[in-house]
């Protein structure tokens, strides 16, 4: 079985976000990037399937600054291949463009199961999984957790509002948008990452296409500050306030 993880980098929210002079995107010079945390869950789920069943795990990322480190870390964790998907465009604007590029890349690979994070901090839609599945014409379960794989099919859990949980069985090839892996992402020691950087190499896969977005950002700005909350000192103060407002007498 070949499990492919589609991952992307997202702005690191530890840093203060700076909007560029045109007011439609973050200033790339002021932005640090990291692996989307949900894609990290997807990678962990793929590695857990590998641990249990011995499959091949590949990680695909659109080529951009900072993805080498992420991909070497994935290799050090146990992925078998790490592929940078290269396009003419430096940036892919939104999940539809990313899905198109990844579908083109997946078209050149034999895959059984595609895993991607259910959403990302920079998403406009949180729909990378369903978009990619429709382009690949494979079944998809989004917001999946509790994945187990056996005999050409996977079983997954999906949580619904109101405390409802469903269990799906999905034939392969297929795609899952991963909410959470069966365990939290594993730690890989720095010495292992360093060793992999010396020994292993990243693959590059050129894909052709325009990869146009379906939507564009018209304007971006920091949210307006609200007036803020007033902290009350205790019950007497609360009671006084409620009396003042006429809620209690």
């Amino acid at each position: 079985m070949h499990v492919v993880v589609i991952a992307k980098r997202v702005p690191d929210l530890v840093e203060d976000l700076v909007i560029d002079s045109e007011g439609r995107a973050l200033d790339p010079d002021e932005t640090e990037y990291k692996l989307n945390e949900f894609d990290d869950q997807a990678l962990e789920q793929a590695l857990l399937i590998k641990d249990a069943h011995g499959c091949k795990v590949s990680v695909l990322m659109h080529d951009a600054d900072g993805v080498d480190k992420i991909l070497y870390t994935a290799l050090a964790k146990g992925a078998d291949s790490a592929i940078k998907v290269c396009t003419d465009a430096e940036e892919l604007d939104g999940n539809f463009a990313l899905a198109q590029a990844m579908a083109a890349a997946l078209g050149t690979l034999d895959y059984d199961l595609v895993l991607t994070g259910v959403q990302g901090a920079d998403d406009r839609d949180g729909q990378l999984g369903p978009l990619l599945a429709s382009l690949l014409d494979v079944p998809c379960v989004n917001v999946a957790s509790g994945v187990s794989a056996a005999d050409g099919a996977v079983t997954v859990h999906k949580e619904y509002s109101g405390g409802k949980m469903a269990r799906f069985s999905m034939a392969l090839p297929g795609l899952l948008g991963i909410q959470a892996a069966a365990q939290s992402p594993r730690y890989v020691p720095v010495s292992k990452v360093r060793a992999v950087q010396k020994e292993a190499s990243l693959q590059e896969l050129e894909v052709e296409g325009d990869f146009e977005p379906l939507s564009r950002v018209a304007a971006m700005s920091a949210p307006e500050q609200s007036a803020g909350a007033k902290m009350l000192g205790g019950a007497p103060e609360l009671l006084a306030l409620l009396k003042e407002q006429g809620v209690v007498s």
Binding site: P189, S191, K192
Partner: peptide, 8 residues
Amino acid sequence: GEPGLFES
């Protein structure tokens, strides 16, 4: 127990 991280 993370000497590689220390070194970096």
